[in-house]
Design a protein around this nucleic acid. Structure first.
Length: 509
RNA sequence: GCACCACUAGCUCAGUUGGCAGAGCAGCUGACUCUUAAUCAGCGGGUCCGGGGUUCGAAUCCCCGGUGGUGUACCA
């Protein structure tokens, strides 16, 4: 990014564009605006004060036996109106659900009834009246009086088909939430999943921490970062791509069990499983290793699924995944033997690895790849599609695992696993590398890869090595993509369905 | 990045071979005091995503662009 690209002038231009307040000449909107003026002329405030709510809609319905014929006050948005001359039915929706209301001229005074007739779908009102059951059996509030809380100046999307246009659903999520009740449920479930994860970890004596989103180095993962600039310090900063290194600094500092749930940012492609800004959880436990992390993953996933869904057997897009522990464990080399029919033990050097991959019909980016990189390529091509899971794939090559400890029995491999469900990577964990000399060599190896054009090689973080030089206890570490976990447990086909405001291009006018 | 698909009233969608721009819901007027996708009668509402081209004539065919979706590539 050049200096000019972040010149404040750009920001001003953008602001100027937003100042062109759209003057909407739509008839319906004009009509509703006029009503605001008319209401005020009559001494009625269309954007009124709050009113003491006695019950949510569903409370009245669920506890009707005790509430029948008592006076209740419900508050919500008018979703439907059915007028019958001197009586009118409507439905009022609140965050819990909706309830029918009945406006009747005999019961209200004439001024109130006429005011009720001026209401539009979308208006927010507070209604007070007697709870009763209609002849058709629906629990209803017979309105004694009501108050305007917010006039809706724009019409809601259609009541029956809802809002389907995904472009509008993502850009105007509030409308999606108003008219598509399942969307609200999905996001409520998201919250329950995240709080379930917190409860699970808190129960194991982990403490939640917060570390910076902005930093001078974006390391701890393999991804291109977003850059930004601090004006006063006149320095470039990066948005974090992972939580890893800061959390391990905390382990060095003496915290035994920490986790952080927060946004990470990766300047990469967008598809049904990737949003540039996404939610990660990373968990670090001193005096633990990757086997402990496997136990933690299967226990956490199954516990949260049980809590949120009431079962450990998850249906996702027509497929079934049983999260009940223990999950299958298979080493990477065993998986390759099984699915690619390749005995990795016979591969002795980088050259023979490249040849073996070619023989299997794998396209390689270049001929200079190391044995470990080839292993990963073969794996992605031939093995990953088979990993329906849930399972743990273990013992990754050291070249592609620069933060993981080498295996004592085979220093080409590491104590690392990834968790797979539905062929997706759900978690990545290691026995953390705590040897600062080895860590420095790994960073240097990554730096030389970066110099050769791999712009996703791990960024060198000198300060992290300094931290390790003070000594980090043996530690197990784990990262999980929260959005994907939410997708799995809410049966959402796209990550955009579990993120309130996914990244979108600005709408062209 | 590439390929394919979509874009028509506030919303959901039709639109035949290139021949006057349509429906349902929402809205407006009227009727109706237990309806619930209320009903009945009537009415209004359009930059057919934008620009260019072909044609007597384009929502429709062609080209360029925009936004979105899906797939693919990338994401060690």
């Amino acid at each position: 990014m050049s200096q000019d690209d972040r010149n404040p002038v750009d920001i001003n231009e953008q602001t100027e564009q937003h100042e062109h307040e759209l003057i909407d000449t739509n008839e319906e909107i004009m009509r509703r605006r006029n009503k605001v003026t008319e209401l005020r002329d009559r001494g009625i405030e269309p954007f009124g004060a709050h009113v003491k709510r006695t019950h949510f809609s569903t409370d009245i319905i669920d506890h009707f036996e005790t509430l029948e014929d008592t006076e209740v006050t419900a508050v919500g948005r008018l979703m439907t109106i059915r007028g019958h001359g001197k009586a009118t039915f409507a439905h009022v929706a609140d965050s819990a659900g909706q309830i029918q209301v009945y406006a009747k001229l005999d019961v209200m005074n004439e001024e109130q009834y006429n005011l009720f007739l001026t209401l539009d779908i979308g208006d927010i009102i507070a209604v007070t009246g007697r709870a009763f059951r209609t002849k058709r059996g629906e629990i209803t509030i017979e309105i004694r009086h009501f108050k305007m809380q917010s006039k809706a100046l724009r019409p809601l999307p259609e009541k029956w088909h809802g809002l389907k246009d995904v472009n509008l659903r993502y850009r105007q999520r509030y409308l999606d939430l108003i008219v598509n009740p399942d969307v609200r449920k999905t996001f409520e479930t998201r919250t329950r999943i995240v709080s379930g994860v917190r409860r699970f970890l808190d129960g194991r004596n982990f403490i939640e921490v917060e570390t910076p989103t902005l930093g001078p180095v974006a390391s701890g993962g393999h991804a291109r970062p977003f850059t930004t600039h601090h004006n006063t310090l006149d320095m470039d900063l990066y948005l974090r791509i992972a939580l890893e290194l800061n959390l391990k600094r905390l382990i060095v500092g003496g915290f035994d069990r920490v986790y952080e749930i927060g946004h990470c940012f990766r300047n990469e492609g967008i598809d049904t499983r990737h949003n540039p800004e996404f939610t990660m959880i990373e968990i670090y436990q001193a005096q633990a290793d990757y086997e402990d992390m496997m136990e933690l993953v299967e226990s956490m996933f199954s516990t949260v699924a049980q809590e949120v869904l009431g079962t450990m057997v998850v249906e996702y897009q027509g497929k079934t995944f049983d999260l009940t522990p223990p999950w299958t464990r298979i080493t990477m080399t065993d998986a390759i033997k099984k699915y690619a029919n390749l005995d990795w033990a016979t591969i002795t050097d980088d050259r023979s690895a490249v040849q073996a991959a070619k023989a299997l019909g794998i396209k390689l980016k270049d001929e200079q790849m190391t044995k470990g990189m080839v292993l990963d390529a073969v794996f992605s091509e031939l093995v990953e599609p088979h990993l329906q899971g849930p399972l743990f794939l273990t013992d990754y090559p050291v070249e592609i695992s620069p933060l993981a400890k080498k295996r004592e029995d085979n220093p080409e491999l590491t104590y690392r696993f990834e968790a797979f469900i539905n062929g997706w990577e759900f978690g990545n964990a290691f026995t953390e590398l705590n040897d600062p000399i080895d860590q420095r060599e790994r960073f240097e190896q990554q730096a030389s890869e970066k110099a050769q054009g791999n712009d996703e090689a791990l960024a060198y973080d000198e300060d992290f090595i300094t931290a390790l030089e003070f000594g980090m206890p043996p530690t197990g570490g784990l990262g999980i993509g929260i959005d994907r976990l939410v997708m799995l447990l809410t049966n959402a086909p796209s990550i955009r369905d579990v993120i309130f405001f996914p990244v979108m291009r600005p709408q062209a006018d």
